[in-house]
Amino acid sequence: MPTSPPTLGTLLKGLRARENWTLKEMSAKSGIPVSTLSKIEHDRLTLTYDKLQGLAKRLGMRMTDLFAEDQEEPVQLVTARRSLGDVARSVRVETPNYDYYYLCTELRRKRMIPVVTKIRARSAEQFGELVRHSGEEFIYVLSGAIEVQTEFYDPVTLKPGQSLYIDSSMGHAYLAADGCEEAEVLAVMSSPEEELMESLLTLHHGQRADAAENENEPPTLGRRLRGGL
């Protein structure tokens, strides 16, 4: 019988249960108020990417473990693992400017992170500072059009079927191109670092939704997918 896809709230609740932490104990370890943690666990509040990155660091864990479901993993060298990607089973993260669908999240310690992203940011002001992180990345436009801004090159516009491969340590930003309300892309990031997911969060650095912890902000992060979007 099919099960519902996980939300960040259920994943955090499962982590807290595995570690046998109370909300107060997790608040002390993470630096996030108890009331905020409770709202996140009940999928009523979002977190910014910076907050997610800080949460993982304070808890001393990899981002892949933060996003992973509660299941035992044998301590052994994996030589033939497999994961079928499905947007309806992805871990979905929503922000005012972007929606991210993290695929194949049940695999831990992976060196490639596949993400389907819907891009709505239209300007550098919306995106924020150019981002940099370890490794390399490949981006392929599925629909719409995007403008790619990079540190050492002039901006370039990509349309459906076009792609770009870059060194991720070079400052970069992805924006919806002129005349495009929303673009959808497939991005695959890779790095020799085991903590790739944690490093990858800087990709979203420009989306400083400071109002995310404001009780008046509509809930986005951790919203459960229903019927595949």
Rank of each mutant, 00 (worst) to 15 (best):
R108M: 07
G128S: 05
K110Q: 10
I119E: 09
K118C: 09
R111L: 15
K110M: 07
R108Q: 11
V115R: 13
F127N: 12
Y102V: 14
Y102C: 08
S123G: 03
R120K: 15
R122A: 14
P114L: 09
A121M: 07
R122L: 02
T117G: 04
A121P: 04
A124E: 11
V116R: 01
R108F: 05
E129P: 03
R111I: 15
R122I: 02
R111C: 14
A121C: 11
Y102H: 09
I119D: 09
E106I: 00
A124Y: 09
E106H: 13
A124L: 11
L107N: 11
I119C: 04
Q126M: 04
A121G: 11
M112N: 13
L103C: 06
V115T: 15
P114Q: 12
F127Y: 04
R109L: 04
F127H: 07
K118E: 14
T105H: 06
K118R: 15
E125C: 00
L107M: 10
T117K: 02
A121S: 14
Y102M: 12
Q126W: 03
R108P: 06
E106W: 04
E106R: 02
G128F: 11
V116S: 00
E125N: 02
M112A: 14
R120W: 12
E125A: 00
T117M: 10
G128C: 07
Y102E: 06
M112G: 11
C104R: 02
V116L: 14
M112S: 12
K118G: 07
A124W: 07
R111A: 14
R108H: 06
R108C: 06
I113Y: 01
Y101L: 05
S123A: 09
E125L: 01
R122H: 13
F127W: 02
G128N: 05
M112R: 10
